[in-house]
């Protein structure tokens, strides 16, 4: 089944908006694969999110450990006309799963976080994870969350620590969108306070 640029992406956007407004909420996107089946070596939701928000006006950067990052970059560029740029300048940073801990930590500390006059000029991260759930993981609270929530992303502690120091000077910071293999998405914007609960 092909992706309908108008109606399918509208659905994806509403899911993203819902998740961004209610951090930690997990919603699932409709499975659309078929068209890209043989090419996809990453979660389809990554591609759907990219199609929804990227166009010629914005730039992106992909962090991946194999050449699948380059393939995805080419695919996204050809579909959306968005340009690949350096980590420091990218409006969107897309992270694929892989052995890339160090690169991610480095990217977290050097990516755009806006300035006080224009805090919106910051990077939005779209991060591929194995499985999202509300059992265990980090404890989050803040705007959009009634009391507090648990969010399991499978990411390491240092990731959250670096993220926390990145959003210290609110309103500066980065917004995170997580996607998993089941086409589920969940968001953690800069306003969310993240507490580490897991060990290791």
């Amino acid at each position: 089944m092909a992706i309908d640029q108008v109606h399918d992406l509208q659905q994806v956007y509403r899911n993203m908006l819902d998740c961004m407004a209610r951090p930690g909420t997990i919603t699932s996107l409709e499975q659309k694969t078929g068209l890209f089946e043989d090419q996809l070596s990453y979660n389809e939701a990554i591609f759907l999110c990219a199609l929804t928000v990227l166009d010629a006006e914005v730039t992106f950067y992909i962090i991946a450990d194999t050449d699948k990052g380059d393939k995805l970059a080419e695919l996204i560029s050809s579909y959306t006309m968005a340009r690949v740029t350096s980590i420091e300048k990218a409006d969107f940073i897309i992270v694929l799963q892989g052995d890339i801990k160090e690169e991610i930590n480095k990217a977290l500390s050097i990516c755009k976080m806006g300035d006080l006059i224009n805090p919106q000029q910051s990077a939005t991260w779209i991060v591929e994870t194995a499985a999202l759930s509300n059992n265990g993981g980090v404890t989050i609270h803040g705007p959009g969350i009634k009391e507090s929530k648990q969010l399991q992303t499978g990411l390491w502690n240092e990731f959250w620590q670096t993220r926390n120091s990145k959003v210290k000077e609110y309103p500066l910071g980065i917004d995170l969108i997580f996607v998993d293999a089941l086409n589920q998405i969940s968001c953690v914007p800069r306003t969310t306070s993240v507490k580490l609960t897991e060990v290791g």
């Binding site: 509208q10 961004m20 929804t52 939005t124 309103p171 914007p189 306003t191």
Partner: peptide
């Protein structure tokens, strides 16, 4: 669709920075 994308990006940022005029 290009116009929608631009508005959608601004809206996502607006939600992430409550009260700030994007």
């Amino acid at each position: 669709e290009g116009s929608k994308k631009e508005i959608r990006r601004a809206t996502l940022k607006a939600v992430a920075i409550p009260g700030y005029q994007v």
